[in-house]
Write a protein that binds this DNA or RNA. Sequence first.
DNA 1: CGTGGCGTTGATAGTGTTCAAAATTGGTGG
DNA 2: CCACCAATTTTGAACACTATCAACGCCACG
Lengths: 251, 251
Amino acid sequence: MLNPTVVSHTTVRRSNRTPVAAPRTSTRCSVCAMRHLCMPQGLTLDDLPKLEALICSARSVRRGEAVYRAGDAFDNLYVARSGSLKTVMAHRDGREQVTGLRLAGDPLGIDGISTGFHTCSAVALEDSSVCIIPYSALKHLCRETGAMQDRLHRLMSEQLIRESSQMMVLGSLSADERVAAFLLDVSERNGQRGYSHAEFNLRMTREDMGSYLGMTLETVSRTLSRFQKRGLIDAQGKLIRIIDLEGLRHL
Amino acid sequence: MLNPTVVSHTTVRRSNRTPVAAPRTSTRCSVCAMRHLCMPQGLTLDDLPKLEALICSARSVRRGEAVYRAGDAFDNLYVARSGSLKTVMAHRDGREQVTGLRLAGDPLGIDGISTGFHTCSAVALEDSSVCIIPYSALKHLCRETGAMQDRLHRLMSEQLIRESSQMMVLGSLSADERVAAFLLDVSERNGQRGYSHAEFNLRMTREDMGSYLGMTLETVSRTLSRFQKRGLIDAQGKLIRIIDLEGLRHL
DNA sequence: CGTGGCGTTGATAGTGTTCAAAATTGGTGG
DNA sequence: CCACCAATTTTGAACACTATCAACGCCACG
């Protein structure tokens, strides 16, 4: 289960307190990170060198910084490498909504393919890093390597399913159910990455959560407090421990 | 503007009244329909024969019938050819939510790529037809033809943007704003297909609309009535005429 | 040791839901 | 072609849930 190549959350947290001079400019992505995060399953050994040539760099992003902003020209796809980010979309009247939470291994920037410009922004929730994948090179590789093509298609399709699910959360669930669904989603994704299902550091603010879940920050806060009183979770600010997973599932 | 190859809505409506014996089994998709709906822009003439071989059939779907259902094995992508369909996702407790409205030219089934099974259902809102595109053959073609690869990627990315936008509608807008946004969206998409921006036959029920917009059918009905009283629209059941487009845009 | 961002909690108001009933529509079969 | 019946739509009234406004506490940071 545990994936030792993924940068641990604790490491990231520590680096927030004592900010080691992280390379701000592009750095070579380690093959090990690539194997597990950027390119994943299904490639033969023959394909590895091609991929190495493709994913040529990584980029550090400070908390609050954007990997790309809505309106930016689209050239690269990204894959979250460490840390976490949110995607944000803006209405014409200025209202903003958080449309996604991206953890290590999640793709970023697919929205730019259709028009050549990004329609949402990707902002780091903590000091993070992303792999940079030049789209033109990726396209080329996908035409050579069926496994890579499959991988890309699956990534896009997964993203689509994730957004559909979130549409259902927003359209059909009550406030309690939304918060519970969100906590369970983060719990599961944390587990998939080899971390604890039960305890995690949610770097979103209550306002971000509210925006993502279609409710106000006050309602998020109240809901979490109520969950805590009921013995479902233990929340100390951003640090959240799930006590009664089944209880959350049943509402 | 007007695209003469698209099957007109009135034709479809008439066929509802006097159901001409439509071929229920697979029929060869006309090249003309393919050119404009299934495969579109950016292919060279060399690519046409390849595409013809690929999109080998169409399928008629009666109102209420499903092109595919959640849980079905994924083999084909589809493109709406005439009529309109809704995509529906189900919660484990049985609650259903409409996640999309697909008009002629819109793709269907992309959600199946990631797991090999469809996660939502596609149900015809009126007697409709869809082009069938075997996914394995499409993948193969995409590796031969860059234009086809681009087209597929853009289609998926567009879908992603559409869903993000809907997330924002569900998460940030009031009931009035949601209904207005929906009407404007349908109006625009109708216009893009060569039909009237101002008048269209919305085959969704008030319940479908409510589900899609995250509100009850009663609220949808009330909102439409209020819009009518304010002189923004003229709604006679499913037939909707937009009177004050700017008024709708400004809320 | 302020200061500002973030989180919690309370009181009140508003928006949309729920329940109910009547009106209308449209598809089906005679 | 018409009549009927079920599905859909509309409208009303009471209620529930969540938003809003406001005050306060906490912590990290300069």
